[in-house]
């Protein structure tokens, strides 16, 4: 989009491969009908409130607090998922130990496990009378039905993003560079922090952003384990459902549009990170 218009530039470049019109037309039609039209309807509905109205919804204390919970906890969860996900990715690619392949397969579980199933499982596990929850209660931590519960659910769903974006890059690291660094006298720590980690940063950021975006919107697994208490453990998607139950379609749409805008910015950030990384390191 950003390239300067060249003289006589065609919409697309010439090729012998057929089917451009058909496939692009079909793609655009599907995209339009399934994604864009409904989203446009949402935006139109929210726009009915006017900018002042949307602002009023966004700054309503309860909405603001729900957005804070969703975004705040999701940030923390994505951070945790990125740190531990980084360790998991490193361990899975660099070390050999019994059960490595199994552990590797397990990482994708949150992709495949329905969120409602994850929700009831996490709730029964971390409830005060659950297997883990009862242990946590002994040391004074209430997990389920508090923001901690939301955090746990968000880490669960964000983890695979954090691991899977970093893993292929760790596998691609050229060990000779590390050897060179070591032979040149750098300590292992210095090699890791100066040679190994920097090229991984864009991938870690991408994984972080994906986990974050997913966590912000998550609903199914969280409602079972969050306390759903206004101002404390009420998440933005739940507030949309509540607004709907109150027949407040505009309010629900306004919250949805706010979330959508932030998600879109996150996606944009991911693309920028990737573009930057392509320039800086020559790969995504």
């Amino acid at each position: 989009m950003s390239e300067a218009p060249r003289p006589k530039r065609r919409f697309r470049q010439r090729t012998v491969i057929p089917g451009f019109g058909l496939t692009l037309g079909y793609t655009l039609t599907c995209l339009g009908v399934i994604v864009l039209l409904p989203l446009a309807t949402l935006v139109a509905k929210a726009a009915g409130l006017g900018p002042a109205g949307i602002w009023a919804v966004a700054t309503d204390p309860r909405v603001a607090s729900a957005l804070r919970v969703s975004f705040g906890v999701s940030l923390l969860a994505a951070l945790t998922a990125s740190i531990f996900g980084g360790i998991v990715a490193w361990v899975l690619t660099r070390y050999d130990f019994p059960g490595r392949k199994l552990a590797d397969a397990v990482v994708d579980l949150p992709f495949a496990l329905p969120t409602a199933v994850a929700g009831i499982a996490l709730a029964s596990l971390y409830a005060p009378n659950g297997a883990v929850g009862s242990q946590l209660a002994k040391i004074g931590i209430e997990a389920a039905y508090t923001p901690v519960g939301i955090f746990i659910a968000m880490v669960f769903i964000g983890l695979p993003f954090a691991v899977r974006t970093v893993q292929p890059l760790i596998a691609e690291i050229d060990k000779e560079v590390e050897e060179a660094s070591a032979i040149l006298g750098a300590s292992r720590i210095a090699t890791l922090t100066r040679v190994v980690l920097p090229p991984l940063i864009p991938a870690v950021l991408t994984g972080f952003a994906l986990a974050f975006a997913r966590g912000v919107g998550e609903y199914g697994s969280i409602i079972f384990i969050a306390g759903n208490l206004p101002y404390v453990s009420e998440i933005a998607p739940l507030l949309i459902v509540i607004k709907l139950s109150e027949f407040d379609y505009e309010g629900a749409s306004a919250i949805a549009v706010i979330m959508l805008a932030i998600s879109f910015v996150t996606l944009l950030a991911i693309n920028l990170i990737q573009a930057w990384s392509r320039r800086r390191f020559g790969y995504v």
Binding site: Y145, G227, N228, L229, E234, L238, V241, I242, S245
Partner: peptide, 14 residues
Amino acid sequence: VPVLDTGARGSTVT
């Protein structure tokens, strides 16, 4: 009230 469920059933389960 520590937990505010969306329906009566949710509260009972809690």
